[in-house]
Amino acid sequence: MDCEHIRSLFTACQDREISPPDLLAFEAHLAACPHCAREWQDFRKTLRLLQEMRPLPVPSDLLPGIHEKLGQRRGKTRLQELLQRFFPPLPTTAASLAAAALAVMVLIKTHDVSGPETSVLAPSAPIARVEPLDAQEPSLTMPVSVGQPAGDDAGFLPYAAISRPPFPFLLKREATESDLLAAWHDQVAAMGIEGPLGGPSSAPDIVVKVHHLSPEGMDWLHRRIDREGRWQTRGDSRDRFLVLVDPGELSAFYELLQRQHLPFSVHSSPVFERDARKPLLVSVRP
């Protein structure tokens, strides 16, 4: 064993996770190498200092403060006040639709590394339909429309818009990123679009657009998600922030938006080398 390998065993040795043969070799090396022996002593002293640090006493008003905050957040007046302040009123039709059901459109952008937009069908406007949340789970073999990014989406790759399905499907707790991907691949395959759409390099991250939201509303939503504490947030731009969401929690994230009665649409964009354990990078934009 060389010195570097010995140092890689410090934690295993300290925490008694080392195998007997490794322990013998470890001890033999330390006996013959004063430098490593000194390092090992310093290592142990460092941990002793760290582990002997006394925990700070808990403030006596911690629990009463929790109840106070819970009481505040149970009251709806403040929430209603904030909603009124930050979210411009929706047009009557849209508002009633939002109240009855959330208008959700999932736009899934395809990733084509062989060249931009070569396999895209004729541009068409994305289709959005209102689906009652308690609707029967839609079939995942329904038609898909493909459109050319425009306006805010101009910087993105071409997308396939799944016209009907996603919200009830994604709202299910067990729906994961791989469910989303499977649905996406099925739809795209059914359309005969060519290109490297499958495989690990084409997994999407998600862009959630929250409609009718002012910059102040974005700030508010950012803080709200931050305060929820369930996911990490990144970035503090007024027109965009990021949330790291575990794939299995995607539906919970949508639920949060739904609770605030925020109409939103969901897009996906390509990301590379997605690992199933890594969180989704959800970009929230107005």
Binding site: V58, P59, D61, L62, I66, K69, L70, R73, R227, G229
Partner: peptide
């Protein structure tokens, strides 16, 4: 509380942060 303190290194902030954590837990 101690976890919170090790991030923010301020007792007032740590208390507020710990309270927010438990509020999230409750909900």
């Amino acid at each position: 509380y101690n976890l919170a303190y090790s991030y923010v290194k301020d007792q007032e902030e740590a208390r507020d942060l710990a309270q927010d954590i438990f509020v999230t837990v409750y909900r």
